[in-house]
Write a protein that binds this DNA or RNA. Structure first.
Lengths: 216, 216
DNA sequence: CGGTGTAGTGTACAAATATACACTATGTCG
DNA sequence: CGACATAGTGTATATTTGTACACTACACCG
């Protein structure tokens, strides 16, 4: 997969971003337009080279018959792609530590990006948090998992939420009972956090709506 | 999303299956061919109906300009999405029961589709299996999770694999030790499966490369 | 009965699209 | 310098594809 020239990489990025944006691959002319090129033949050559190098597969004669083999493999470049005025790629940031400033994305803490299904991430501020520690191990949430967080300050009983405790984000199960709030770890080695009366130094950042784990 | 006729659902299923197999949506004629229909106009009507009902979106005049809209919306026979603002690169079928015939997609067993990042699902035959039972609970894999499976007949030690045991698919951790194979559940309530010497009635279907869980 | 909704057939045409060829320009490397 | 690889332009053509219209068939319902 090496030997891909910078220009070919741009083509590849554009295809990936277009696919991501529209749900189907671009046509030759759309690729040319996207790269600001007036002509198709150069794009054809790039496509042939990319196919020869294994980056894509094609179905000859079929419109938009492009299949990406490695997908979006270049983190850090996809934000630069535009189609007209609109940015093509939309990713959810993976933040390392959650802060009080959320859900404003703390750019300097972004570990990477993860593209995600729209119906999972329908609201704008959704983000990923990489799980640290084993406080939710009995809820089958492990260290290293990506927790998909929907920012919100309220929660229902038994929701798993991101709580900001002493400046650090942890996952807890949320309970509201007789006038107080209990944040319960799913691990007997950890004590629950009780918030009675008015708010202490604990706040709810959001709700965990999904868990993603890579075993590869 | 109600009011979708059985025939329209077949169209929707075909689009999803085609998208999964080829990486791009089908053309009108391909849909008609896939449904055994000689004509396009009926398909056009179905497409218009599906768009009106919100199941898909289309880009008029654009070849293969189809986006499946819905997410996992219908229990049992859902199709999955892709959409303008936040489409995902790929569709994977969710199969209910794994068979010896895999990785050829058994269309009649498809429970639904789940879109997933392309750099997770790079090879063609990858699919989802919905986890049944609690045999891997100590590996934090729960009933109802979607296990992302990469079909393969070989595995490394400690890989979590899909094993076909007595016609049913279960997840086990794979061990090869002193000339035999051990399929170890991650639950002390279940016994390991030992395959000694030549193959018995147990086969490896694929390797678990990801776990996805929705808590919403 | 007529009215309505769903579904299929045959045909036609304009637009979108992939593919091809000849030519030019710019680098790098021996 | 020449050989070679990468990259862009203009043009042309056959194929693929979306879209449209007129007509038929069937089931359901008041």
């Amino acid at each position: 997969m090496e030997d891909i020239t910078p220009r070919q990489r741009q083509v590849l990025d554009f295809i990936a971003a277009y696919q991501h944006r529209f749900g189907y691959p671009p046509s030759m002319r759309e690729i040319a337009d996207g790269l600001g090129v007036r002509n198709l033949f150069g794009i054809q050559r790039h496509m042939a080279a990319l196919e020869k190098k294994g980056a894509i597969e094609r179905s000859p004669g079929s419109s938009r018959g492009i299949r990406l083999n490695n997908g979006i493999a270049y983190p850090g470049q996809e934000e630069q792609l535009y189609h007209g005025d609109e940015p093509l790629a939309h990713y959810l940031p993976i933040v390392g530590t959650v802060r009080a400033g959320m859900p404003q994305t703390p750019v300097e803490d972004i570990q990477g990006y993860y593209s995600i299904d729209r119906n999972v991430a329908r609201s704008g501020g959704t983000f990923f948090l990489r799980v640290k520690g084993d406080s939710m191990i009995n809820a089958s949430i492990c260290e290293g998992d990506l927790a998909l967080i929907r920012p919100q300050e309220v929660a229902n009983n038994r929701d798993i939420v991101v709580a900001l405790v002493e400046g650090e984000a942890t996952l807890k199960r949320f309970y509201r009972e007789n006038g107080r709030i209990r944040l319960q770890p799913e691990n007997p080695n950890y004590p629950p956090i009780i918030i009675s009366g008015d708010d202490g130094d604990v706040s709810i950042v959001g709700k965990v709506v999904g868990i993603y784990r890579s075993l590869d």
